[in-house]
Computed example of a mutant assay.
Amino acid sequence: MNSNPEIKTLLQKFVLNQCTPEETNEVIAYYKKNQLTDDFPTVEDIQNLLAEMPKMEKQKADDIFANILKTSKEEETVIELPSRKSNYRKYISIAASVIVLLGIGFFYKQNMSNKAVEPKFDFKSSDIVLQLENGEVQVISEHNSAQVKDAKGNIVGNQNGDKLVYESNSDSEKLIYNTIKIPYGKKFRLQLSDGTFVHLNSGTTLKYPVKFISGENRQVFLDGEAFFDVAKDKKHPFIVNADELNVRVLGTHFNVSNYPEDALTDVVLVEGSVGMYESSQEFDAAKNTILKPGFKGSFNKENAKISTKAVITDIYTSWIDGGLTFRNMTFKNIITKLERRYNVAIVNKNEKLASEKFNASFKEESIENVMSYFNEIHGINYTIKNNQILIK
C-alpha cells in the first residue's frame, strides 16, 4: 500500500466527505493513475481491514461511492451500486479498486475506539464533572472552590461555587479543550477565556477551548441548553455547534436548546444578530438564516429546515432564574424535562397522556407544585414517594 502521508491525509478527508472540489479531483486522478499497480489493496486486504473497523454510516458510504461513479462516467467500465440496504462490505466487494479506503482503516479504528472507551456520563448523578484534554476528570462542588490546571500544572481557571472562570493570559498556542457536564437537577455558570459568559442548564454538556487562539474562530460544542453572553470580537466569530446546526455570532445574547428528545434545535435571540446554518456547510450571510432580536429560529433535525417566528424571549430564558416553560410540548417530552430539571424518576402508566400536548409556565417551583398544577388543571393523577413519581 502507498505510504505517502500526503495522499493518506487526502484520502482520510475524502472518505469523511471533507474534500474541496480540487482535492476530490486529485483523489480521482490518483485512482485512475494507480488502479492497476501493486500499490492497490486487494479485496481480501480491504475486508481484513474492515473486520477491525466499525461500520461506516450507510448514508456516508452512499455519498462517497456516488461521487466516485459520477466522476468516472467517462470510463468504459460501469460499476452498479447495490441497493441502499447494502452494507459497507458489499460496496467494497463490487468496487475493490477504489483507493479511498487506502490507509484510512486504522485512522478510523483509532478514532472510533477512543470514543468507545470514553466513560458515559451519568446525568442522574449529583456531580458536576470537568473533563480535561488529557482525559483526567475533576469533580466540581458548587459549595467549594478549586483551581483548574493544564497538563504542565499551570493554572488556567478558577472555580468558586457555581461559577468557573478561565484565565485570559494563558500562554497556550494551540487549541486545548475542556468539557463540562452538568447533571440533572443542577445549573452552572462558565466564563470563557475571551470573557464570554455561559449559563448551563441541567443535563447539558459543553466542550470549549481553554484558550481561544488568534486567527481561529471561537467555537464551542453544545449538547443540552445554554444561554450565551458573547464577548464582542469582530475578527473572531463565535460559533456554537449543536450537532448538525451551527450558530454564528460576533457578540450578542442568545439561548440555544439542543436536547436529544426534541425534534427541533431552538435558538432564541435576545440581543444582537446570529446566523444559523448546517454545520456541514460554510457560513454565507446572503444565503443563511439571520435572526433578529425577539425571534426564535428552529432547526428541524429530520429535514434540516430552519423556520423563524417572533417570540417573547423571556419565556425561553426564564430557566436561568429557575423558571420552567412548556410550549405545545408532548407530555412524554415534559416528563423527560421534569426528570432532568428535578433529578427525579417519573413512571407514566397513563399511555394516552404521552402524545397529548400542553402549554405551561412556572416560576421557581418545586416538583410537588408542578405536579399539583397538572392535577388541578388537567386532571392528571399521581403519587410521589421519595424521588419517584408514578402517574396513574
Rank of each mutant, 00 (worst) to 15 (best):
N4E: 14
Y342L: 09
F123S: 10
D150V: 10
S168Y: 03
V137D: 00
G195K: 06
T179L: 04
E271W: 12
F65R: 13
P260C: 06
K115D: 08
D314W: 00
A116L: 12
D321R: 13
S172V: 05
N114W: 01
A242W: 00
V165D: 04
I176C: 05
N111E: 12
S202R: 03
L200R: 01
L250C: 06
K349E: 13
V240C: 10
E271Q: 15
F107L: 03
V156N: 10
E6A: 12
K32R: 15
L353G: 05
G297Y: 01
V129K: 10
I104G: 03
G323D: 09
K32Y: 05
P237E: 08
A226T: 10
F65K: 09
I384K: 14
A146H: 06
S72F: 06
A360T: 08
V27H: 03
A95N: 13
Y31R: 06
V230Y: 10
F107R: 03
D314L: 08
N255K: 13
V347G: 00
T42L: 08
E261G: 09
S72K: 05
T265F: 04
I367A: 04
S170T: 15
E244N: 15
G322S: 07
V344N: 04
N178M: 06
T205Y: 01
S145G: 03
T265M: 09
E75P: 02
V156C: 07
I104S: 12
F362W: 13
D127R: 11
L192G: 07
N25F: 00
K33C: 02
G135K: 07
V100W: 07
A96W: 09
N154C: 05
I182S: 01
P21H: 01
N201P: 00
N300T: 03
E44P: 13
T330A: 06
T196S: 13
E6F: 04
T24G: 04
P119R: 09
D243F: 12
N158M: 11
F14Q: 06
D171L: 12
F40K: 10
N178D: 11
R189P: 00
A96R: 10
T204D: 04
Y342A: 08
T37S: 15
I94K: 12
E136D: 14
F197C: 05
K187W: 01
E173C: 08
I315S: 04
L324E: 04
K232E: 15
K187T: 15
V274W: 14
K232W: 11
I346E: 02
E216W: 01
T9Q: 07
L16R: 09
T265Q: 05
V27Y: 02
N359I: 03
D162V: 07
R189M: 07
I176E: 04
K332L: 06
Y108V: 02
D229L: 07
G294C: 02
F14G: 00
H143A: 11
G224M: 06
Q147K: 14
I239S: 13
